[in-house]
């Protein structure tokens, strides 16, 4: 019985401790981000010739492209990938909105199984960063591969339909890349957002495109993990609800187990530690005053536990 107590309490302490460390790290990273944004405005111009191509696959809202076009970093482009036959409405609305015209398509043969039908660009200078790809959709990984082929810059940022870039995220990413140029980095992972990766184009090509196993063989030293949040997600109510339900269910199961196998005091300790984790996250929310970082995003590290058993996966 004593052993069960010790194990349960150690796990609780570990969870609470990790949440505290994570909240502190993210708060510090956010203040660093704000410091750079406030004090280096206008300085982030083609830092060390670093360029980023943002790929949006499964675009279903023109507002996402609007959000991405706000970035002012000069070596930056947006590649929107849509199948015009599957989603003609959104495709032609984008073409119309930005006055896009079809341009020549001679795509290199670096990756196999890519089906690009056409490329579209705008005649208007203010939209010159935008490239629209019409591809025959087979899978999200294929959409990403198609965009990688036409990407001009060294680093790729894949975004799905619900992801949006934070203000000055590209500038901050360029600072990170240019300051770590001498390290042989394959990717930068924003651990605050769980799914945000900035990946080196050459690595994707050498790996024969995107896949769930993209980072399987990569040593952790070649992936720079930053606690700075670079993106935020919208329309995540369903995800939040599911996550909240899962957390409540897990807490309830632990409590039930303790009521049966341990004693009431352990159950109280568990309840208190769950409350503590929630309060720490709430505290981060209040202190950082971060309107984009909801509580569940801070707790996404619980999903990282899977990596211990399955390795790092690139999921879309």
């Amino acid at each position: 019985m004593q052993t069960i107590h010790i194990i349960i309490l150690s796990l609780l302490l570990l969870a609470v401790g990790y949440t505290i460390i994570r909240a502190i790290k993210t708060t510090k990273a956010l203040s660093m981000y704000n410091f750079f944004v406030d004090n280096t405005a206008g300085c982030c111009e083609s830092l060390g010739f670093t360029g980023c191509s943002v790929i949006c696959y499964a675009v279903n809202d023109i507002e996402q492209i609007e959000n991405l076009l706000h970035t002012e970093y000069d070596r930056y482009e947006i590649l929107a990938v849509i199948d015009s036959r599957l989603y003609p409405d959104i495709f032609y609305s984008i073409v119309k909105q930005y006055g896009l015209i079809r341009v020549n398509t001679i795509v290199s043969d670096e990756l196999s199984n890519t089906h690009i039908r056409a490329l579209y660009r705008s005649r208007q200078r203010r939209f010159r960063r935008l490239v629209l790809l019409d591809e025959a959709y087979t899978s999200p990984y294929n959409s990403l591969d198609c965009a990688t082929l036409v990407a001009s810059y060294e680093y790729i940022i894949p975004l799905n339909a619900s992801m949006r870039l934070r203000e000055h995220a590209i500038e901050y990413a360029s600072i990170l890349i240019s300051e770590n140029r001498e390290r042989a980095l394959v990717a930068i992972h924003s651990s605050a957002d769980d799914e945000c990766y900035i990946i080196k184009r050459e690595y994707i090509i050498s790996h024969d495109g995107f896949s769930a196993t993209l980072f399987h063989d990569v040593p952790s030293t070649q992936i720079l993990s930053t606690p700075t949040p670079l993106i935020y997600t919208i329309n995540n109510e369903e995800l939040r609800r599911r996550f909240r339900n899962n957390m409540c269910a897990v807490t309830f199961l632990i409590l039930l187990f303790e009521m049966i196998w341990a004693d009431g005091l352990t159950a109280v300790a568990t309840l208190l530690s769950a409350l503590l984790i929630y309060l720490i996250v709430k505290y981060y929310n209040v202190v950082a005053n971060d309107r984009f970082c909801p509580e569940w995003a801070m707790l996404c590290y619980f999903r990282h536990i899977r990596r211990i058993f399955y390795g790092r996966k690139f999921l879309v």
Binding site: L100, I101, R102, V103, N104, S108, L119, Y120, V131
Partner: peptide, 20 residues
């Protein structure tokens, strides 16, 4: 071959068909 594909791709030539 790679360089030509890049230069002759979308960055240079326009196909004169407008989808608006």
């Amino acid at each position: 071959h790679y360089a030509e594909a890049l230069i002759k791709s979308y960055k240079r030539d326009l196909v004169c068909r407008q989808y608006t």
